[in-house]
Write a protein that binds this DNA or RNA. Structure first.
Length: 160
DNA sequence: GCCAACGTTGGC
DNA sequence: GCCAACGTTGGC
């Protein structure tokens, strides 16, 4: 059972990495995903103990800002059948859930944001899912990509 | 099952 | 605010 690596996108005006770190136990439900491909990852593949890069989209600048770890496997997203939630879906119900979420716990804020522009100009990241599948909000990434991005965001660590 | 229209994401 | 790239919807 090897760990897998993921990149989760969030608009910081909606939910930022700082918001996650302000939660009790730095833990939150990753709710509101309403895309089938991302849903499949959340429901079937993302497991407790997997690592997550937290990415800010529609930000200045956009990029990876921190890390998190998955603390609960996929389970039905109850906000879908709450008409007062931000992403209601009347087709989903407790009996027949459509959408899923995991819980994540914030770990470390990067020393510096690894911007999308920096990642785009890094040849070893050219096959990264964020470039090959634009607009997806949950991406699988490789260990190599995880490692490269973390080092880009940790210049002090890198020089030790 | 095809595909046009429409909606959303998200970089710029 | 613009718009490219996709995903979804619904008529046929």
């Amino acid at each position: 059972m090897s760990k897998h690596y993921w990149l989760f996108k969030s608009e910081p005006t909606a939910y930022s990495f700082a918001d996650l770190m302000d939660e009790p136990k730095q833990t939150a439900e990753w709710d509101g995903v309403r895309n089938y491909q991302a849903r499949n990852f959340l429901r079937d593949e993302i497991k407790e103990g997997d690592y997550v890069l937290f990415y800010h989209s529609n930000a200045k600048p956009t990029g990876v800002v921190g890390t998190a770890v998955v603390v609960r496997n996929g389970y039905p997203d109850h906000t879908a059948w709450d008409p007062n939630s931000e992403h209601p879906d009347p087709k989903s119900s407790p009996e027949k859930p459509i959408w899923y979420m995991v819980d994540i716990r914030g770990q470390v804020e990067l020393e510096k944001t690894v911007t999308l522009a920096e990642m785009r100009s890094t040849p070893s990241l050219e096959n990264c899912s964020i470039f090959t599948r634009p607009r997806l909000s949950v991406h699988p990434i490789t260990y190599e990509e995880w490692d490269i991005i973390l080092k880009m965001g940790s210049p002090l660590f890198k020089t030790i």
